[in-house]
Every structure is written in structure tokens, then in C-alpha cells.
Simulated assay, not measured.
Amino acid sequence: MTERALRLGTRRSKLAMAQSGQVADAVRQLTGRPVELVEITTYGDTSREHLAQIGGTGVFVAALRDALVRDEVDFAVHSLKDLPTAQPDELVLAAVPKREDPRDVLIARDGLTFAELPEGARVGTGSPRRMAQLNAYARSHGMTIQTVPIRGNIDTRIGYVHKGELDAVVLAAAGLSRIGRTDEVTDFLSVDTVLPAPGQGALAIECAAHNASLAAALAELDDPYTRVAVTAERSLLAALEAGCSAPVGALADLPQALDFARAGETPTADGQIVKEMRLRGVVGTPDGSTLVQLSTTGPVPETETRAMALGRELAVEMLAKGAAGLMGERAL
């Protein structure tokens, strides 16, 4: 007797469908079972308000989580940066697959890079985090830009540039990669210029906690380096008591692995060569006039508990430097 299809809950957007489709393919190969996508509309998809106004925490995931709890779907795929930092007891984060490029990118008219933007350029983004860092970079480099709050899917945002309404927009590299549109990028923004959102570029695969056999199967898709990295980033976010639309950037990376990659070498998978993880965090005012940016480096965490401790420790340092006063949104 053929087993019934696993039901994968996903948002309806082109990007969500693309990344859920990729996970569905992997789960089919892993389990030998058919997987069907179940499209679910979230509040974040239907509201026209900016995320900071509607309390961006969880607006893209609540409906998917409700469907899991009601057993309408077997598992769900989220963009990890959209997940609230508190994990419900009835659900389990079964897998965090290997992360895509975490950087932000610029899509500008006439193929311009960020440094080439004209004086007074209008740059669209829906993210206070991006606004804070872009404006801070512009200030420090004698540039004048105007950051314009926007919403909408990828097509809508890029359309502002094509129509001449904006000079450029800033998007996540991972999303464009997953829908095959990186050829439209005019500038990949260094993480030294703009730190990404905590968890950016990573996916979260979630299922009901009571479904132990499915959780165990999905765990085969987990990438341990990605999991400890995003755990450290999200722990920092939680310790700052900030929501996912607050002006907080964070990135945990493996500086030794980056050095090896530049040299054309491959670090060992068991972590014997890559021994250190660097965690960077930033909080800023949207106009870029004030930033608190700190980093810490320590051994690659062997457990999520240690990764969480790394994030909390850096958050304490940032709070001591005044980070709390720069955030427009507190946890809901």
C-alpha cells in the first residue's frame, strides 16, 4: 500500500513556493514518499502596512504554525529570519539546511553599484536594519542617499527600479538565488557594510513535536554549522528583546573557513581545522546617525546551548553600549 503524501505547508509567494519546492524534492529523495505543497496565506502576505507597523514578529509564520498544530499539514518551510525567537513547545525545528549566501544585494538602474549611486539617490527597502546600515555607510563615505520604505514581493520591488520610481532597491541574495534571478544584481553588499538579518539565507523546516519519526527523517537535512550559526544570531536577537523587524543585524561565520576558501582549500567537515566562530552584531537608528556594532570570536559551538550563550554574551555587551535605546520595536 502506498503511503499518503506528506503535506508541506508553504506561503504562496513565488519565493516561498520555490524554496519549499526545493525542500520537497529533498524530502522525496530522503523518504521515498510523495510530497504535496499546501499553500497557506499569512497575515504578512495580505497586510499592506509596513512590517514595523504590524509588529513584524511572526506575521509570516503564524498561519503555517497554526496549520501544523491543527494537523492540516505535516511540516512547514519558513525563511528562518521570519521565525520568532521563542520556539513553541508543540513544534520542533527539525532541520536547518545548509545556508545560502546571507548577504544583501543592490539592484540599481544602469547597473550601478552602491558606491556609484548619484547624490540623493532613492534606495528602497522595507527593513529598518538595512536603512540604518546603508545610511551609516553613506554618512561615513560622504554620500547622500534617501532610503524609502517599500513592501511587496520581489517583482514589485524590482519594478520600482524598472519604472524609474527608485534608483535602487536592496534585497536578500538568497531569495534571488532561489528563484534564479541573481543576474539582475548590480552589487553584492559586503557584510562589512551591511550585516544581514539574524538567520538570513537559511531555511527552517518545522513539524509537530509529537511526530518523532518525521522529525527524525527531516533531521537528515540539517547542517550543523548552519544551525549553530543561526542559533547564535537568534540568541543575540532574543537577548536584545527585539523583534524580527527591529534594526538588528547579526552574522555568525567561520573566518578560518573563509580564509581557506579564498586560498582554494577545503576545511575538514569534522571541524578539526575550522575551530573558531565569529559573531558580529549591529543595532542602529534608521537614519544611520548612531550604530552600536560589536563582535566576538570563540570556539565553534558544539551544541546549541553553547551557541545561545555566545549570542547572549554579545548582546549583553551591546546593551551596555546603548543598544536598547536604538531599537524601535521590543518583543511582543
Rank of each mutant, 00 (worst) to 15 (best):
V248P: 00
D183T: 11
A215M: 10
L240G: 00
A269L: 13
Q256P: 06
T285F: 02
A242E: 01
P267R: 04
K163Y: 12
E233P: 05
S289P: 03
D155G: 08
Y225L: 14
E276I: 15
G243T: 04
G175Y: 02
L237M: 11
I205M: 05
Q293F: 11
D183L: 11
D167E: 15
A174V: 04
Q200V: 08
E184G: 08
A239D: 12
Y160P: 01
G249A: 07
I273R: 10
L214R: 09
S177Q: 12
E206T: 13
S245G: 10
P198Y: 05
A238E: 07
L236A: 05
E276D: 15
A202S: 13
L240K: 01
S235T: 13
E165A: 14
I154Q: 09
R234Y: 08
S213H: 14
L166R: 01
T186S: 09
P286R: 01
G159M: 05
G180S: 11
A242G: 06
I154D: 09
G284I: 00
N211R: 14
E206I: 13
S235P: 08
R278H: 13
V185N: 00
D287F: 04
L166G: 01
D192C: 10
P255Y: 08
R280A: 13
D155P: 02
Q200M: 12
Q256A: 14
G288N: 01
C244S: 11
K163G: 09
R234I: 08
